[in-house]
Design a binder for these strands. Structure first.
Lengths: 154, 154
DNA sequence: TGCATATAATAAGTATACTGTCTATCTTGC
DNA sequence: GCAAGATAGACAGTATACTTATTATATGCA
């Protein structure tokens, strides 16, 4: 394999896309002290108040350990609170604070702009294709998978 | 934005693709104690013996800090050596050891299989499209960019 | 009931990534 | 030929990510 071909290997390109995506997100949300991962968690918690950490992990495809530390940081910033579940004293139920909701409202448009900017080099048609292909790769189009996730979130 | 829509956001999908890619790579190369990033570095060093760290970083789009610690680990495993450059005593020239070359030879086919497996859910045509779209997104198709990188590697 | 199993979190360890800072060294411009 | 600026690398700090182990708690089955 010549070295130039490294540049067209899917693994390499996916990593670079990820770098790019994080950089664009950071640019658009600069000054708000929030990362892509923290945003996804906070957003999902607001949509599902009382979510357990393990369910959150399944919903947004985080590792369970990762979720723990992400929630630590969100809690430190007073954007989220953990409350022990009455029905299961092992579980932490997650709720967004007022500050968390306010932050979400403030950054929502910027996040949307970031998502658009990530795909800016592509034509409108290619953007749709790219998204479809990624969904197929990670199995999100898979109805079984999605319904399982949603069921778990109840 | 309803929560389901999070699943079709480019940022989220790119992150999941990256998770998938790393997992597939790890599966295929299990038992060889090498990561995607370490492989890319080692491979590139063998192709460009005497490469400086900063040039390596530019070639494979690593952060300079990241390269430093990646090389630390490769050096610890005796796969690579650093030698101070005579012409510039700040620079470290990188060389693969015999063990490094042997490892590359041993894992090459497995890495290739991993790259294929990452795109397995796509048709042959869609794989090509997906790769082209990613190259456009990260600007690799951009001839200017590439020639700059190659020039820097001399 | 009672124990084996399963699950929710946490913690520790390793590996990317990026920012900023620092030192050593090099290069340029005057 | 020297001071100013640029560059190479190291280091510290923060944030994902994943693995494995541990603890606390539930659950299921005999």
């Amino acid at each position: 394999m010549p070295v130039e071909q490294l540049y067209s290997q899917p693994g390499h390109l996916i990593r670079r896309c990820q770098q790019m995506a994080v950089a664009v997100f950071a640019e658009e949300t600069s000054g708000y002290d929030i990362t892509p991962v923290q945003f996804a968690a906070l957003f999902t918690i607001r949509e599902h108040p009382g979510l357990e950490q393990a369910t959150l992990a399944r919903l947004i495809a985080f590792d369970r350990s990762t979720v723990g530390s992400v929630i630590d940081r969100l809690e430190e910033k007073k954007l989220v609170v953990r409350r022990t579940a009455k029905h299961d004293r092992r579980a932490n139920l997650l709720h967004a604070t007022d500050a968390g909701e306010a932050l979400l409202k403030a950054v929502m448009a910027r996040v949307a702009r970031a998502q658009e900017r990530m795909l800016e080099p592509l034509s409108s048609r290619d953007r749709k294709i790219f998204i479809k292909l990624m969904m197929r790769l990670v199995g999100v189009g898979d109805a079984t998978n999605l319904s399982t996730l949603n069921a778990a979130a109840e």
